[in-house]
Simulated scan of single mutants.
Amino acid sequence: MPTDGVEKATEQATQILELLWRHALPAKPGARGPKPGLTVDAVVDAGIALADREGIEKLTIRAVAAELGLRAMSLYTYVPSKDALLVLMVDAVAADDPAIPADLPIRDRMIAIATRIRTELIAHPWLLEVSPWRQVLGPARMRRYENQLRAISDAGLTDLAMDRAIAVLTDFATGNARLAVAAAGATAQLSDADWWQVHGPLLAEVMPAADFPLAGRVGTAVGEHYQAPADPDGAFAYGVATLVDGILADAGD
């Protein structure tokens, strides 16, 4: 990367990190801060409320400013860009995740890691649209990672295995949350029973049943049991229990 590109990236990273850790850092002597009457926290809260209500595609500096009764240019006093605001929003949401009770059995503590991630994503579906790669770590996400590690620190895993266990549980919870969010959005428009009433007979007409004997038999059983194409909640309960049992079995080797 050219020198000017590195300098620009460093400047942007410094600005975002200082915003993320604003409550932990001492105020700079003589620094010019935002105008009184509004805080960065209030801007972040407004961004979260907007994204929860209308989705991330509607999240703009102008829209958040309108939420607060301000002009768009005024908001740049508090956050330098939409990307920076998103980083702050992701960290702020993580602050709602308290420590996992230490008196729970280790298996329940590990399941809680995945359950809390899934619950957060379902409550804030826009998080699924934020790239998880190279996310800048703020105090809330670091605290959650610390709490997750503490929750499994007595499982007999190495440091690398603890990190990998948290990553695997998070990835599974994220994938299942994506399915649950999609299911909720679909049923809001047309119930699963109505959808299948339309598509079932049409599929039966075009699909040669003899070519798919197992898929036809299992698919019919699933549809009759769930009255839906799938069961995100049941799949999560089964999957996370299976994952945790596998992780704990590996820890005992």
Rank of each mutant, 00 (worst) to 15 (best):
A13V: 07
I48D: 08
H225D: 08
V93H: 02
I111A: 05
A95H: 03
E120A: 14
P139N: 12
L248D: 02
V40Q: 03
S191H: 06
V130F: 04
R150L: 11
R116K: 12
I122M: 02
A114K: 02
V222T: 09
M162G: 01
L86N: 09
A49I: 03
E205T: 13
G234A: 10
A65V: 01
G234M: 08
A95R: 11
A51L: 04
V90C: 06
I152T: 03
V40E: 00
T60N: 11
R164H: 15
Q189S: 08
L190E: 14
G33P: 00
D103P: 03
G55Q: 13
Q135A: 05
R217Q: 12
G175Y: 09
A215Y: 09
T77E: 12
T39L: 10
L137N: 06
M110I: 10
P201Y: 07
I100H: 02
G55Y: 01
G175I: 01
L128H: 07
A92T: 11
D250N: 12
R118Q: 13
A173M: 01
A188G: 14
T14C: 05
A24I: 01
R109V: 06
G185Q: 15
R22E: 13
R134F: 15
D163W: 06
R116S: 09
M73V: 11
A209V: 14
V244Y: 13
E205L: 13
K28G: 14
V90A: 14
D231V: 01
I113L: 15
H124C: 10
Q189E: 11
T158E: 02
A235D: 14
G69H: 05
L20C: 02
V93Q: 13
A184M: 05
V168Y: 07
A31Y: 04
E129L: 12
I117L: 01
D103E: 15
P101C: 09
V181I: 12
L190H: 08
A102H: 10
G138S: 11
R141K: 08
G30V: 05
G47E: 11
G234Q: 05
V44I: 13
R32E: 10
D91N: 01
L88H: 08
D194Q: 11
P26E: 07
L190V: 15
M142Q: 12
L248W: 02
F172R: 05
R178H: 06
L50K: 01
Y238M: 05
T60Y: 03
F172K: 03
R143K: 13
L149S: 09
R22L: 02
D4W: 12
T170C: 04
A193T: 15
I247L: 10
Y238S: 12
L203K: 07
S153P: 00
A228Q: 02
F236R: 09
P201D: 03
